[in-house]
C-alpha cells in the first residue's frame, strides 16, 4: 500500500510541477511567442525569407479556417458546456448543400454559400430542439453521445447521398487562380478573400453577441443557467440560437476550405482535429482565444510540416495531438480561457 501511495504522490507532484509551468497567463503566452519567434528567425535565416513568407501565407490560409471552426466549437461549448463532436460533419453537410445549390440549381456560389449557411442554421436549430433540448443541459455525457450519433448519421448519410468521390468545390471569389507577389512570395487573391471573409464573420459574431438582445441572453445563459432562468430568459431558445450560429459559421468554414481540398464526406475530419487543438489552446470558452489559437495552429502545422523533415504532411495531425495534450497538461484552461474548465 505504501508503494501505491508513494507512486500516487509522485504522480501528483509531477502534475503540480507541470501546472506551475503554466500558471501565469502572461508567461505562457510569452513562452509561446518566444518559441515561435525563435523558430521563425532560425528557419527564415536558414532557408530564405521568401520561402518563409510563403509558408506564413499558407499557414494563415489554413489558420483562418481552423479559427472559424474553433469558433463554432466554442460557441456550442459556451452555450451547453459540451464539445460538439458533430461540428465538422455539420459543416461538411452544409458544404454539400452549398454544392448542390451551386451545382445542380445553378445559383451563383457566394449566394449558394449564404443560403447553405441559413439552411444549416435552420437544421441545427431543429437538431437542438429535437435531440438536445430533451436532456438536462447539465447532463454532459448524454449530450456528448448524442453528438457522436449525429456524427455517424451525417457522415454516413452524406456517403449514401453523394458517395465518396472527390468533387471540386467552386471558388466563391473573383480572380480565379490569380495571385500577386509580396516580397517574392505568392499570395492568391482567393486566399486573401478567405482571410477577410473569416475576419468579417468573427466581427459579425462578436457584434451579434455584444450588441443584440439574443446575444445578451446567450452570454447570460453561458454564464449561469440558474440566474438566467430567474431573469425570465428562455434557456432552450437561447441555446438553439447558439447551435444555429455555430452551424452557420461551420458551414462558412467548410465552404472556404472545400475550395482548396476537395469535397467528400470525410473532408472535415482533418480540419476538426486542428480545430479541437485550436479550441483547446485558446481555452474552450474564449471566442477571441479560439480565433488567435486557430491561426497559431495553422501556422504551426504549415511550419512544422514544411521545415521539419520527418513531420512532413503525414505527421501534421500528430502535431495537433501533441499540442492538445501539452496544453491540457501545462495549462488546462488554455491561453485565454477562464479557470472553471473541468466540468464533467
Amino acid at each position: 500500500m505504501s508503494t501505491t501511495q508513494s507512486v500516487n504522490e509522485s504522480i501528483g507532484k509531477g502534475y503540480a510541477a507541470l501546472g506551475r509551468l503554466g500558471q501565469k497567463r502572461i508567461i505562457s503566452i510569452g513562452a509561446l511567442v518566444a518559441v515561435l519567434a525563435a523558430f521563425s528567425v532560425i528557419v527564415a535565416v536558414q532557408h530564405g525569407f521568401t520561402l518563409f513568407l510563403q509558408r506564413i501565407f499558407d499557414g494563415l490560409s489554413n489558420g483562418f479556417i481552423y479559427a472559424a471552426m474553433a469558433m463554432a466549437l466554442v460557441l456550442i461549448y459556451k452555450a451547453t458546456t459540451v464539445v460538439n463532436f458533430a461540428q465538422g460533419e455539420m459543416a461538411m453537410f452544409g458544404t454539400f448543400i452549398a454544392y448542390v445549390f451551386g451545382h445542380s440549381l445553378g445559383i451563383p456560389t457566394p449566394l449558394a454559400i449564404i443560403l447553405a449557411m441559413l439552411a444549416s442554421a435552420l437544421g441545427a436549430a431543429g437538431i437542438e430542439r429535437v435531440l438536445i433540448r430533451p436532456f438536462d443541459p447539465r447532463n454532459h455525457l448524454a449530450v456528448t453521445i448524442v453528438t457522436l450519433g449525429l456524427f455517424l448519421i451525417l457522415n454516413s448519410l452524406a456517403g449514401v447521398i453523394w458517395a465518396y468521390d472527390n468533387r471540386a468545390f467552386p471558388s466563391p471569389f473573383p480572380g480565379r487562380n490569380r495571385s500577386f507577389s509580396v516580397f517574392g512570395a505568392n499570395l492568391e487573391w482567393a486566399n486573401l478573400f478567405t482571410w477577410l471573409t473569416v475576419l468579417a464573420a468573427v466581427l459579425l459574431v462578436s457584434l451579434l453577441l455584444s450588441r443584440t438582445k439574443i446575444g445578451l441572453a446567450f452570454r447570460s445563459v453561458s454564464n449561469s443557467l440558474e440566474s438566467s432562468e430567474l431573469l425570465g430568459i428562455h434557456i432552450g431558445r437561447t441555446l438553439q440560437f447558439g447551435w444555429a450560429l455555430a452551424a452557420a459559421v461551420g458551414t462558412l468554414a467548410g465552404t472556404m476550405i472545400a475550395r482548396t481540398t476537395l469535397l467528400e464526406p470525410n473532408f472535415m475530419g482533418r480540419v476538426l482535429i486542428y480545430s479541437f487543438a485550436a479550441a483547446t489552446l485558446g481555452g474552450l470558452d474564449s471566442l477571441g482565444g479560439a480565433v488567435v489559437a486557430g491561426i497559431v495552429i495553422g501556422l504551426v502545422q504549415t511550419m512544422s510540416g514544411g521545415y521539419i523533415g520527418f513531420i512532413g504532411s503525414d505527421l501534421a495531425p500528430t502535431v495537433a495531438l501533441v499540442v492538445i495534450v501539452g496544453v491540457l497538461l501545462v495549462r488546462p484552461s488554455g491561453l485565454f480561457g477562464s479557470k472553471r474548465v473541468e466540468r464533467v
Partner: peptide, 23 residues
Amino acid sequence: PALRIRGLYLAVVTLSVAYVFPT
C-alpha cells in the same frame, strides 16, 4: 494524462488519438 484530463477533454484527446493512428 487522463488522470488530469477529465470528461470532455479526455474525449477530445482520445478522439485525436483515434484520428492520428491511421496516419
